[in-house]
Write a protein that binds this DNA or RNA. Structure first.
Lengths: 137, 137
DNA sequence: CTGTATCCACGGCGATACTG
DNA sequence: CAGTATCGCCGTGGATACAG
């Protein structure tokens, strides 16, 4: 891990753009890299009901590519938010599950989702109004 | 507003990549475009204490470019999260402030920030351990 | 002071092909 | 099934210059 240790161009995906001097925003960066990542949120959300296999995740999250699913799962494992369990069978079976820490994140995220749900309509109205008076230019 | 009405390449910034069929993830998208945006979060955070002028925001958010600050403020206004008040003086003075809706978002975000703060160390340890056993390959 | 317009480098990530 | 390796498009956002 850690940005670009390897041969090619994107062999191990480079960490997200973290180009600033570790000022106050660093904490924010942390959060955004977890909870502001669409795929990460969706994975954590999908795992809420219980463990899932790789392919199941792939299917339960429409639009995600293998590349990003693999990458996201790796990040989440690294942070200790999900666990990976491989069963020595054939064909191979691998299950991903939320850790306790992952559960707490899910709860925190849920707060935001609720907020979004609660104010979604209001925001839509605001936008419409804004765009209207805007277009009046 | 709305992606690319104008001449050049990025004249009015294009909306964030929203290339998927409005499935379940759409709600998530909404959230991420608000609370997952570094600058948006930082602006809302900076406005917590009270109204600020454009230049003050520019300074209180290290690393933000004029471009992004302007763009972010516009988005936030559009969503009804902040207000813009221009005073007809010379030199011109413009103040940005959180709306009530903006305050509620701030609260929701704060939950996440708290989560990050609480578990920051734990995550760091997890990462260190992961990278270590990882390097053992 | 408060923006707006333009240019363009960098890197995220989808698409695709291949391996154990 | 569960990944890994590569390629390349184009969105993102910094830098810069200019305007009201």
């Amino acid at each position: 891990m850690e940005p670009e240790p390897s041969t090619g161009r994107t062999a191990a995906l480079p960490g997200p753009c973290s180009r600033w001097p570790a000022e106050q925003g660093e904490t924010i960066r942390q959060i955004i890299d977890r909870a502001g990542n669409k795929w990460a949120v969706l994975v954590v959300g999908s795992l809420h009901a219980g463990p899932l296999r790789y392919t199941d995740l792939l299917r339960s999250i429409p639009g995600v590519s293998q590349r990003m699913l693999t990458y996201t799962l790796r990040q989440l494992r690294r942070d200790g938010l999900v666990t990976r369990t491989a069963y020595p069978e054939v064909p191979p079976r691998v299950e991903y599950a939320l850790t306790d820490l992952g559960e707490t994140l899910l709860i925190a995220i849920t707060t935001l989702i609720d907020w979004a749900g609660t104010h979604h309509d209001e925001i839509q109205e605001n936008r419409a109004r804004f765009d209207e008076t805007e277009a009046a230019v």
